[in-house]
Write a protein that binds this DNA or RNA. Sequence first.
DNA 1: TATGGTACAGACAAAAATGTAAGTATGGGG
DNA 2: CCCCATACTTACATTTTTGTCTGTACCATA
Lengths: 119, 119
Amino acid sequence: MGKIKKTSTNYENRQILDAECEEVYAANLIGGRWTIAICCYLAGGKLRFSELRRRMPNITERMLTLHLRKMEANRLVKRTVYAEVPPRVEYELTDIGEQLVPILDMLKKWGTKHKETIQ
Amino acid sequence: MGKIKKTSTNYENRQILDAECEEVYAANLIGGRWTIAICCYLAGGKLRFSELRRRMPNITERMLTLHLRKMEANRLVKRTVYAEVPPRVEYELTDIGEQLVPILDMLKKWGTKHKETIQ
DNA sequence: TATGGTACAGACAAAAATGTAAGTATGGGG
DNA sequence: CCCCATACTTACATTTTTGTCTGTACCATA
């Protein structure tokens, strides 16, 4: 989420997988501890920064900011700033972000089944 | 993939999300740089350790081992050891692992569409 | 003048993931 | 006895991600 070193094997390997495997490309977009949770909350409609924070009591402001910025860069969310004081910033899923929701739903069902299966 | 510190905030946060969000639970199962790629190759049928390695020239033996072990622990793959010399070990998807394949396929389609969308 | 709320940014630290390099066991073939 | 192949393991180093803490701008209200 911070700086990446473009000469590392790690970075190189990620690029290679990213390029040759669309599943990995997609997975990298929703990677990060809080990304999917944020998607789930935004699936219910647009939310302010502070509202997201309230829904995820354990995330820090820094982590929320970093994740939202990454998601914005990846075009999963749209960020709207209102010129008010105190500031108001709203986040919502983009079209392509919305299209992820049913997949997350399948993942959810699979996860539930997996939990049952392994015990 | 190595040791985890069970007293860390990081660990605690993961547990919390894991418990309250099945999507995150599922995503954690397929997390890790090489996990999805391994699933994709195993979707075509069982493969030996060395065959997997040949299909992923950039993975190291250590990383392949670690990922396969994690996937085995998570019941995504089944590991079969043959008492031969030199050793032969085969890996294949479990039932629940197979059920992940169509979801990865949706993820792939979404990834392709995302790539088109963002340019 | 002091305080409060919102949505951040920056420096730093800790933890986790990934990668590098070397070594292991086994038995068969030369 | 030496080397080969396979499927690992171990110690260590590097990179990346995550978390802690402090500070900031803005204007309104007390």
